[in-house]
């Protein structure tokens, strides 16, 4: 094999990629390929479903999203299901953040007990399937402490995600230079003041992207509470299907609604993050 002669390339710009690779890599071609793939998938599932004798009734779907009656605009069942999912997820997320922060602070406290408790909690949560955790909170702890299925769902999601969120907090807090601690201590601030005024405001920058990921993750895993029949998007989907037998249309619709919500969330936070960094 001949060694390529590289001597002539010294000090010159990097060789361009071959023309056909550049062509494949361009935006227009990427979009075209993506569209083509999507068309093939959608078309083949459509044809496949038809061959199964499936009767597509997309025209009956919009009424489940919204409708216009004499009273004006009305949300449909899926619309209300979405609101319920958002409410459930938001409550669980808020709780998960509080719990996650506590666990992270315990872990960072340097106290032997604190570290042990938080590590125990993390290992417990991390090694149990979400579904089992849900059953535990609903069938076991629910009757003991007397809360309903709605709170069982919120607690399950909050506890499960607080484990991951506490790691985000820990990483974010550790990412702040230790000189900040020393400076704050040397002007006499107490630990909780240092966290509140000095450390956490600086670590938000590091935590925002993974926190968003976690929020998206939580919204998606909230679908699991449909197994204990808590009214939310996935449960609503199941109910509609048992009434109408339009399983293909409804599952597609539910999937797209989830996707829309999580995409809007991600884009919104990216925008916030951008503004936040520009401000400094």
């Amino acid at each position: 094999m001949d060694a390529p002669d590289l001597t002539g390339l010294k000090g010159q710009p990097l060789p361009q990629r071959p023309a056909f690779q550049r062509f494949l890599g361009s935006t227009a071609v990427s979009v075209a390929i993506y569209t083509a793939v999507m068309v093939v998938i959608v078309y083949s599932s459509y044809v496949g479903a038809k061959n199964m004798g499936y009767n597509w009734q997309w025209n009956r779907v919009p009424q489940f999203l919204y409708s216009f009656t004499d009273d004006g605009f009305q949300l449909g069942e899926i619309g209300y299901g979405l609101l319920a999912t958002i409410q459930l997820s938001a409550t669980a997320f808020a709780l998960a953040v509080v719990l996650g922060l506590l666990v992270a602070l315990l872990r960072l406290s340097g106290l032997v007990m604190g570290t042990a408790v938080s590590i125990g909690f993390l290992e417990f949560v991390r090694n149990i399937p979400l579904l089992v955790l849900l059953y535990l909170f609903y069938y076991v702890l629910g009757p003991i402490f007397g809360y309903d299925r709605y709170w069982a769902s919120i607690l399950t999601l909050a506890v499960f995600h607080s484990a991951l969120i506490s790691e985000i907090f820990r990483a974010g807090i550790n990412a702040v230079d230790k000189g900040q601690w020393e400076a704050a201590k040397s002007i006499g601030m107490r630990s909780e003041q240092i966290y509140r005024y000095i450390i956490l405001p600086q670590s938000i920058r590091f935590m925002l992207p993974p926190m968003t990921g976690e929020a998206v993750h939580l919204i998606k895993s909230s679908a699991i509470v449909s197994v204990i029949a808590v009214a939310e998007l996935t449960t609503v989907g199941r109910n509609i299907i048992s009434d109408t037998f339009m399983s293909f249309e409804i599952w597609f619709t539910v999937a797209i609604v989830y996707m829309a919500v999580t995409l809007i969330l991600s884009v919104g936070v990216t925008y916030l993050e951008h503004r936040y960094t520009v401000d400094q």
Binding site: D177, G179, Q180, E182, A183, A184, S186, P201, Q202, Q280
Partner: peptide, 11 residues
């Protein structure tokens, strides 16, 4: 105390 690396609060 004044530190070598200033340690001002950047935010």
């Amino acid at each position: 105390m004044v530190f070598q690396q200033f340690n001002l609060f950047p935010h």
